[in-house]
Amino acid sequence: MQHTTPTLEERFGREVADRRRSVNMSQKALADLLTTAGLPLDASAISRIEKGTRALRLSEALLVARKMGFSLDLLGDETPPEEEYIQRRKRLDDLLMAAGEAVRLVADEANGIDWFIESNPAAFDTTAPELMSTIEAELRANWVLRSIATRCRTVEARDAIRSLVETVAAISVDDAVGEDSGE
């Protein structure tokens, strides 16, 4: 038995059939639903769609997918795994670079707040400004880490961003207390 890659029509049909069955809908009920939505089909047409033997216009496929609760993006374009890995890795690298820039902007703003507090001591009740700067920088870094942890979907991405934030936060703390990280 020779294994062949399913055609786009077959993958679409399989998704329609899986979605239809998951909601206990008959082919006739799906045909009626689509007919009401402006795509006149009968149960035998639904059967052919599910087998991948009935071609659909793009507008028809979009309507069927929308009514069945999925996106045509779900079907993908059968990118080879090696190429998909490279694409995904590049996207991750780009996102990490963007996250790094965002963290640097947060650190710069935090330093601006420290400068403002130090420049306006009468407006704030601080007994040890250098200790307060260190504590505030650590609190800000922890807040950023918690924010990231709630938004990252993978442990790897979370760890990479956490490492980046900790590095930038350490630089921010060193700057706040006037230490040179090279000493």
Rank of each mutant, 00 (worst) to 15 (best):
L131G: 04
L75M: 05
W115F: 08
A122K: 15
L63P: 05
N111F: 09
E109L: 12
D94L: 12
D94E: 15
D108K: 02
S133Y: 08
A107W: 01
E82G: 05
E130S: 10
I46H: 03
A107L: 01
A99N: 08
G100D: 10
D77Y: 10
A102R: 05
K67R: 15
T127R: 11
M132C: 03
A55Y: 10
A110R: 01
R66C: 02
D77I: 07
I113F: 15
S47T: 06
R89H: 12
D108S: 06
A55K: 09
S71Y: 07
F70L: 03
A123W: 12
L105G: 09
F124M: 08
E118N: 13
L74G: 08
E60K: 01
A107S: 10
R48F: 08
S71R: 03
T79C: 00
R104T: 06
E78M: 13
A102C: 06
V106C: 10
L56M: 15
A122L: 14
G100F: 07
E50F: 07
R66F: 12
T127Y: 08
G69P: 04
S47H: 06
L95Q: 13
G52D: 05
Q87I: 12
D77A: 15
R54Q: 14
T127I: 06
S44I: 06
G112M: 05
G69W: 07
L75F: 07
S59L: 11
Q87P: 00
S119P: 00
E50L: 06
P121F: 13
G69C: 03
A102W: 04
A99K: 02
R91T: 13
Y85S: 08
Y85I: 04
T79D: 05
P129L: 00
L96E: 06
V103P: 00
A107N: 01
A102K: 01
L72F: 08
L75I: 01
N111L: 14
